[in-house]
Write a protein that binds this DNA or RNA. Structure first.
Lengths: 243, 243
DNA sequence: CAGTGGTCTAGACCACGCG
DNA sequence: GCGTGGTCTAGACCACTGT
């Protein structure tokens, strides 16, 4: 027997996918919906939570629940390209970078193949598109390989993309992709719900000649507006992503 | 101010990551925990739900909540290899395949670059490891390119992997990776919670010479036990995945 | 201010696992 | 049957958004 919340979620899901409710539309308030379906607000909210997880609706505190305008805005392009983040062409993208010197610990040691305590430079990058956080990256580079001067303002778009671009020719890139829910911290920095899945990419770049790991990057992208694309043949022709 | 459930989740998270609670351990019952933290059961359960989403605990109806034994068992290997699913070496993997003839519709038409109504063969694959569903794949192939005989029993391991292996030389593979929560249907076929993120991979294989799309595959892997790996240099040396 | 979603309570009852 | 988690209720109160 389907539970009440599943039934409600299905009903609303149908209304959305059939176009009866259109992108941008506001749903009736939760109390109204609860009355309509004759359930308590808690039950109704759990149905909405499911739809939110599927990326069908968006909850805005104090305003209402809205049918999502389905735009996947950013595309992560695998394979260690210089610019590995793409967003909608007409939107401004800016990045904040915080640089810290740390010492290798935990799984960083195995990722970078260094011994515990090795000096590393950590770049904590947050990319925004029109004030909305879009991606979170923690990039670790052995201290002696880090860019000498910490650039404060030099073409942030470039800085964002990939420090691996510093090693363009002889780099071997290995990307491990994973889906999970965000940690509370990640959710708040990306300003997303904790119920929204994120794409977690661990990218390790090694120098082909020496085998030395020159960069490890931990990227977190909101699942509802990010895709990662990998192609054997590196000609990327701006593919469409439909729902 | 952190909410009660966040505080509780954090506390339990710490106990798990510090090893105070070990993999396989059973947590106290929800009513006991609710008493300890002096919250209602609903609040406590929402804290546990967060941990479940992070893959830290596993809920078993009628038995209890358990600290997850962290085993990422399957690794999807990108780049259109013949065998693109790897699991733990000593476990039996078997696959069920259901073949259906359908006609192109919706986004399938744009994926396969065919006109609506074109005849397609759909392979609905479900891979199991020791009775536990592991991955779900919907593979679409233009009807005239589909294997002539539908093999009923021929080395299911091979059949699973990739029909693209039929076009080994001149294939260009484009994989789009996405993180989201499963649809209720996917959750029940994979026997996972709807709160557990899945890795959704859309793989399109095209013949390099003709440019014709020879296969489109929609793969769904449970985020808690699957990773996808992409390497520029295709030597894969069984990397470790730690938490 | 009124209206919205967010958090939380203190219960009730159901469904599952196991002895 | 008993203990477990799963669903649900009918409220209360808080926090945010708008006017």
């Amino acid at each position: 027997m389907p539970s009440r919340r599943h039934a409600i979620a299905s009903d609303l899901r149908d209304r959305i996918t059939t176009g009866q409710l259109k992108p941008g539309d506001r749903l009736p308030s939760e109390t109204q919906l609860a009355d309509q379906y004759k359930v308590s607000t808690a039950t109704l909210r759990s149905a909405l939570a499911a739809l939110q997880g599927e990326g069908l609706i968006e909850k805005l505190h104090g305003k209402g629940n809205f049918v999502r305008r389905s735009l996947r805005r950013i595309t992560y392009i695998g394979g260690g390209h210089a610019r590995d983040l793409r967003s909608a062409p007409d939107t401004a993208l800016h990045i904040t970078v915080r640089t810290t010197k740390i010492r290798a610990h935990g799984h960083l040691t195995s990722l970078l193949r260094v011994s515990a305590g090795s000096p590393l430079t950590e770049f904590l990058c947050l990319s925004y598109e029109a004030e909305t956080p879009h991606s979170l990256a923690r990039i670790y580079i052995p201290h002696d390989l880090a860019p000498a001067a910490t650039p404060n303002n030099p073409r942030p778009q470039e800085a964002s993309a990939s420090f691996a671009a510093l090693h363009p020719d002889s780099a071997e890139v290995r990307e491990t992709v994973n889906a999970r829910l965000p940690t509370p911290q990640e959710a708040s920095t990306l300003r997303i719900s904790t119920a929204l899945a994120v794409l977690a990419i661990t990218r390790v770049t090694a120098d082909e000649a020496t085998g030395r790991v020159v960069e490890a990057a931990l990227l977190v992208l909101p699942g509802d507006r990010a895709d990662a694309v990998f192609t054997t043949n590196h000609t990327i022709d701006e593919g469409q992503t439909e729902r």
